[in-house]
Design a protein around this nucleic acid. Structure first.
Lengths: 206, 206
DNA sequence: CAGCTGCTAGAACGATCACTCTAGCCGGGC
DNA sequence: GCCCGGCTAGAGTGATCGTTCTAGCAGCTG
């Protein structure tokens, strides 16, 4: 409650960026949507628009990492956890009328060449996602190097799937990604752990 | 030569968008970079900035489709064709100092909610890429439905890989994607064609 | 009640935006 | 030699951008 104005500003900015992109979102829009005056925005973010974007990236980054971890925590098997994540992302797209689910990819793509602070924080968030997914895969029995590759692929497919599904206004691309995920995860885990292999081969072939 | 001014405008706009995004690119920048006066830009593109973006998407879309087809045409085996494509994309990133290789994904993500004409043409380009990759996979022996899924995944990984590699300023994510491609393609082809299976299993396991 | 601090309020600045408009250049057909 | 249409040229419009600045509000502390 004490910092609710700050939170409102970050939340409103995140939603506006998801709709209109970084350069397409103005501080006057943020001021109206938050609601908060321009003075308040610069009070909490003396660094201006760039600092605000950094805050949005950090906030979204940790929210999504927690979302991922809560999904995998309650999944009964590793391969299903990933496709469940994609299914849930697709559901979110439908509910929000295909607003971009992830402001980070948008901001990164727009300003990776012009704002080094933003580029760096976006890179750190992507890394943390890769690490979270990789840890989960290793814990499920995959070899570390293969887990890292697959985790990178997972983040790549997430961002790419968002682009395609948002552009097509259909979750079909995300569903295709989800379908491809199962055998990938199963094969990585079975390669690393013979006990896992039998369990997952059974699942894939059922 | 007759339409060289128009071509210069489209080329310059494409490069600026790859660096600064759609909303981050102004017509005065285009005018300076082309070079061409504002009057010339509006002469060739009476629809203004939006029409110019549509032209950029169409042009880039066909260039990339041709690039993909030329790469797969000279590849000796289907699985290698895809990873060769990713390798080449990574090389391009290094050469251009990690400028975004694809203006379409950037534009689509920025304005999919605000410009229906742009959204539609970007969607058509993505579809044509999926179709090109799918046709190639079917021709190589994959089942049509599986080929379509895999082709969608391929475009998804391309766009997602661009985001991650550009943000990280490293081609490592693209290389991880390329490594994952081989077994995916091989398994799709072997499932559809027994003759293909033997050939590709040999390759994957070597 | 006084004084301080954290926050809000909104006018103002110069720059730049997408876009319009009129004037003029220039080369090929009569 | 003259005209005419494709193209260029660039000043000008109103709006909006990110940012700065000063003034004042509300709610604690003493």
């Amino acid at each position: 409650m004490a910092s609710s104005t700050r939170e409102r500003i970050v939340t409103a900015t995140s939603e506006l960026i998801r709709r209109y992109g970084y350069n397409g979102t103005s501080l006057s829009q943020v001021s109206k949507a938050a609601p908060a005056t321009i003075g308040s925005i610069y009070h909490f973010f003396p660094g201006g628009k760039e600092a605000l974007a950094v805050a949005v990236i950090e906030s979204t980054g940790s929210v999504y990492r927690q979302l991922f971890e809560s999904i995998v925590a309650e999944a009964d098997d590793p391969a299903a956890a990933f496709s469940h994540f994609f299914d849930q992302a697709g559901q979110l797209l439908i509910e929000t009328d295909y607003i971009d689910p992830c402001p980070i990819g948008t901001i990164a793509r727009e300003v990776a060449s012009t704002s080094e602070p933003i580029r760096r924080v976006a890179d750190a968030v992507f890394d943390s996602w890769v690490e979270a997914a990789s840890d989960f895969l290793v814990h499920s029995g995959a070899q570390p190097s293969e887990a890292h590759d697959l985790a990178t692929l997972f983040v790549t497919m997430t961002e790419g799937g968002f682009i395609l599904s948002r552009t097509k206004r259909s979750i079909e691309p995300l569903l295709a990604v989800a379908r491809a995920t199962n055998p990938l995860v199963a094969s990585a885990i079975s390669a690393g752990s013979p006990t896992g292999r039998a369990r997952l081969d059974a699942r894939v072939n059922r």
